[in-house]
Design a protein around this nucleic acid. Sequence first.
DNA 1: TGAAAGAATACCAAATTAGTATCCATTCTG
DNA 2: CAGAATGGATACTAATTTGGTATTCTTTCA
Lengths: 155, 155
Amino acid sequence: MKIGKLTDYGVLVLNHLARTGVNLQSTEEIATATGIPLPTARKVMRTLVDAGLVLARRGAKGGYRLGRSPAQIPLLAIVEAFEGKLTLTECSSTESDCEITEQCSLAGNWVGINQVLGMVLAGISLNDIRHPAGLQRLADSFKSSNEHIHLVSID
Amino acid sequence: MKIGKLTDYGVLVLNHLARTGVNLQSTEEIATATGIPLPTARKVMRTLVDAGLVLARRGAKGGYRLGRSPAQIPLLAIVEAFEGKLTLTECSSTESDCEITEQCSLAGNWVGINQVLGMVLAGISLNDIRHPAGLQRLADSFKSSNEHIHLVSID
DNA sequence: TGAAAGAATACCAAATTAGTATCCATTCTG
DNA sequence: CAGAATGGATACTAATTTGGTATTCTTTCA
């Protein structure tokens, strides 16, 4: 259960763009600043632009900048930009190629889990990623809400 | 962001063992019941046993059964049995092969995210996976705690 | 008009993961 | 005690996914 390298790269780029603000950054600047290989950086940028997280300006003096404020960029959006809709298993994806779906009574049960995970990732913003302090408090807040979950789940 | 097929198989097997209870199930029985290819099922069983989630009895009339009650088997344990400690990125794993760690100021910031995700998965039991109703209520409970997170996170 | 950017497409390489085969160790039963 | 039925361990192969690269086209500014 990992995110892809490209997704990770995406976060690095977004972090860099959050720091440089409104100043347009060329692919080359981004590549050197983040350590991402140049051709790969191109691919990353295209994905980010397609997802609407980053704005591009073409031509000479062109470049990239964030499409919204870091607080309004959820981790979920970044992950789904690179890896498609969040589904932990094949079963839960729409075009399930899973051959044993017949006998697998669990097929539908993953939906809820995906929802929960999605909500968690939706609650983490680029800002949270950039500021460890906020993350720590975020983790702590979960520790308490987790007890809540245990009360609710069926045993 | 998916779980591996083997992990998914693991859940299928655990589900089957939860249904069959104390009756020892042979690898072959498990394979036919779940639709998992026999040789692959062997591999899955070994992993589950190593993780302590399943008990094995060798020799004739041997087989497998759950090591604990379904309510005491968290999804986190299943995932980590097959995929190792939960780390979304290379950076956050202990032996980070990530070459750009120097320039990557985000290296440490994933720790908190991993923690949060780990807590969520720890809060979901095999029982929750088997009973969709419980999952739905679980998802709902998160919707409210998510607002809590937004209050806590830094914008 | 040419240089400096991004956009699009297609392709290749490498790493991971799934799947298989083989041989060994244990335990029950007659 | 022997043999059959089972799980354990190891090593190998194949397939898929993912990351990375190259090439060509389009847009915009000076």
